[in-house]
Amino acid sequence: MKHVPDPNLPVELDGGRLRRDGVQCVLDPGDEFGVEAGLRLVEEHGGEVTLVSMGPPAAAEAIKRGLSMGAHRGLLISDDALAGADALATATVLAAALGGRDFDLIIAGVESTDGYTGTMPSTLAELLGLPQLTFATSLSVTGSSVRVDRQSPDGYQVVECPLPALVTVTAGVNEPRYPSFKGIMAAKKKPMEELALGDLAVELDVRQKVVQVTQAEERRAGQVVAADGDTAGRIADLLAEAKVI
């Protein structure tokens, strides 16, 4: 899960990158679906939900939010050297932190709200040697296999694979719960593990860099009118001008 600038606030850019410091951040709304999916599976089958995030120390807040929803423990990987990590670097660090641990399923969002590369999860799956079921609009586990409805451009496909596996969930897979007061209090006592880059055997080099930022030519606003008796006629005129009717 990722801690991201609050998507309800206007975007601030800094040299082509999203400004993150001094900006109000929240648990990525897309990751709330993942937390909820994990909680439901554990309620049904037993086990524990561990929340994992790589990010600045403040990302602990995102993990706390998930803990107050009911997850069991947190793992935060934080290091100054990770600022600006791309999807491959993020996946490499997460794979190093998760490899060797015992888990059945990794759940992620389809894409993060701030970076929206959408590739971190499949890169992570490959590094861990796991199959991945992406774009899940529903998710169930039976015995030792996981099955999802996978969104596709013209409908959906049912895809299944054996555990352990990685799944990415879309908004719409469930309705995330709100943390209860009890949950918020309980979260304060839940275990939170913290790792730095030095604790992991990884080497990173950044091979994508922003070289130029320009402003696109903005589309200019045209005329805005209040609806009246002429409105439909004027829209129809525009359709006729465009030669589409």
Binding site: D86, A87, A91, G118, T119, T123, Q132, R207, Q208
Partner: peptide, 14 residues
């Protein structure tokens, strides 16, 4: 593409 990025260790731009 995400999986290939891990295999080749190459950067992937989205």
């Amino acid at each position: 593409a995400g999986r290939l990025s891990a295999k080749t260790g190459s950067p992937l731009m989205s």
